[in-house]
Design a protein around this nucleic acid. Structure first.
Length: 212
DNA sequence: AAATCACGCAACCGCAGTGAT
DNA sequence: TATCACTGCGGTTGCGTGATT
């Protein structure tokens, strides 16, 4: 049944036939104009649903299967730096979508790391007030830790810059200092780059770069 | 064998940002 | 400048399936 001026959309899992129709549409018309895709193909799906299906499943660039240890490691590191910016994180992991990364984090990694949903276990002792505020308040609200108007290239520079500087700082610290840090670090995951005190200041600088 | 439970993942929802008119 | 349509994002829901009782 179809009301006047409105469309009746199907919900739930996509069928093989629907996938085939959407694939055919993208082959001919390319990506985008998803609302039009629904009209042209006769699919009883909303534009958003079509886009999501393509992005998360049908696109040939989507990698299926289990996450490797390297991917896990990358996600964990990026999540520490970026928070729940799933699309940014996914953008740095070839073949993985934001939805995949988000699901993987919520079902595997957050449990593995002992991170409770909605509340980080970060200790304030080694963090500056600014960093602490960012992680506690901004991540739990709709505000963005890093303004979205910064480009991917800028992010790339900061991430790489942070790691380089971290290695530099790390090499000048006594192991005892790092061990002390581990006890207070918000995640049990072993990452010396983000837990040494000097790097907290570095992180301040890094985030300062992104502040409006 | 049937019922229940737990987990993983696909999909939906609401909101914000952006571009066109 | 205001409005509208579209896209993209993150949080959440709910279904399918395998494990357990």
């Amino acid at each position: 049944m179809e009301g006047v001026g409105s469309r009746e959309y199907r919900k739930g899992l996509w069928t093989v036939e629907e996938d085939r129709i959407l694939m055919d549409y993208v082959k001919v018309h390319g990506k985008g104009k998803w609302n039009r895709a629904a009209e042209v193909t006769g699919l009883k799906r909303g534009g958003k649903s079509c886009r999501l299906r393509w992005m998360n499943y049908l696109s040939p660039s989507v990698k299926r299967g289990a996450f490797s240890e390297e991917e896990d490691d990358l996600i964990i590191r990026l999540h520490k730096l970026l928070g729940n910016r799933w699309s940014l994180i996914a953008g740095r992991i070839p073949g993985r979508t934001d939805n995949q990364v988000k699901n993987h984090w919520n079902t595997h990694l957050s449990i593995k790391l002992g991170v409770k949903k909605g509340k980080s276990k970060i200790s304030s002792s080694k963090f500056s007030k600014k960093i602490e505020a960012n992680f506690y308040t901004k991540l739990s609200s709709n505000e963005r830790l890093i303004p979205s108007n910064k480009t991917e290239i800028e992010l790339q520079n900061v991430i790489e810059g942070s790691h380089e500087k971290a290695k530099e700082i790390n090499s000048t610290h006594e192991p005892t200092i790092r061990n002390d840090c581990y006890e207070n670090f918000w995640l049990s995951y072993d990452d010396p780059y983000l837990c040494i005190p000097s790097l907290m200041e570095l992180s301040d600088e890094s985030l300062g770069f992104f502040m409006p």
